[in-house]
Design a binder for these strands. Structure first.
Lengths: 188, 188
DNA sequence: CCGATCGTGTAGCGGTTGCTACACATAGGG
DNA sequence: CCCTATGTGTAGCAACCGCTACACGATCGG
């Protein structure tokens, strides 16, 4: 069964949890299977091949990340909305979702499939969620996309720096600067 | 010989060129050796092991990238300096250097060595070069580090998006927004 | 009750990985 | 002229990779 089934969805969820902990780069089926109580054999029974599994994992992770953003409390100002997004982006689940996204995007940098396609799709949904969050905080609709684009790009860059600069005040200062910039975009 | 030798440096340069074209993720010794006219055997003769080779490649790439930045014409305003940096970041060599950096940083996200260590070192040198470039354009020294940090993070995020958004006007708009933001940091 | 489908374990395929043992050729210094 | 150091090709190791052939139990509709 390579389509939909309860077991397939269970495995997809467990595999996503595993990848959030271990990373996407260098993922291999045997350790993954063993870690989530199954085997490479069964993973390839429920998923067409490794690419199918990886694509599914990426979609599940993005689903959770986007849901986390949509569940965020609405901010009263655009500035505060950006700070709130960053706070969320550094807490547990969402940080790990973005870690997966960044690794997938890095793999897709040279056009390698299935990463390129899935990352493109993920980027769209991620952008949409941030656009909505900024809009709800008062960002004019015709500026929201531009602002969200900048927010996402900067966040991804900051995520790349995270293991180097955790607890470095430069991080928070950069986020504040970004929030200022986005507020300017929204207000001008 | 695992220390310094002319042949070792030749190989390091050729390997770096190869990685700039093919990417760092999933690099393996046999294809690399064949592509640059040697063999895995000889790579491991001149380099202690794969990690040693990868570290060297990363250092060579960063050297070239930093040199490219330092060779940039001095801008008359901070705003123009950021735009100039981005123009350079999208041309040939420097774009490929940053591609390697982004892939290495993605591999280091979970603390995997040798990526974490080398990326930390690379980040410092990269930051220093951008600080100098902004300073020469008139950015006050006490603000240059903050500004450079924001520039680098945003650039890395934009690089991740490049395969998705090439020729998308959002890209240029984001860079302009960034330049505005940096000019504000420098001028306030 | 029987045949078909579904799920699973075993075992293995062909290929690639990083890395190494060994032979050997060349060269330069005593 | 030998002896050591330096470089290189061959050949292979053990481990791992994604993936699959095959057998077998369970389950369920006829």
């Amino acid at each position: 069964m390579t389509r939909k089934s309860a077991r397939r969805e269970e495995l997809a969820q467990a595999a996503t949890d595993y990848v959030m902990r271990q990373g996407l780069i260098g993922l291999s089926l045997r350790p993954l299977g063993a870690a989530i109580g199954t085997s490479d054999r069964m993973l390839l029974y429920h998923f067409r091949d490794k690419d199918d599994l990886v694509s599914t994992i990426l979609r599940v992770a993005i689903d959770q990340g986007v849901a986390e953003i949509r569940a965020l409390q609405v901010s009263s100002t655009v500035h505060e909305a950006v700070l709130g997004l960053w706070r969320a982006a550094r807490t547990g689940l969402l940080e790990r979702c973005q870690l997966i996204y960044v690794q997938a995007a890095a793999e897709g940098l040279l056009g390698h499939e299935p990463y390129l396609t899935v990352v493109r799709e993920a980027n769209g949904r991620w952008l949409e969620a941030v656009v909505d969050h900024l809009s709800r905080a008062g960002c004019p609709p015709d500026r929201a996309r531009q602002a969200a684009f900048l927010v996402i790009a900067t966040f991804m860059g900051l995520h790349l720096d995270l293991p180097l600069t955790r607890d470095d005040p430069s991080l928070d200062r950069a986020v504040t600067d970004l929030a200022d910039s986005v507020a300017a975009i929204a207000g001008s």
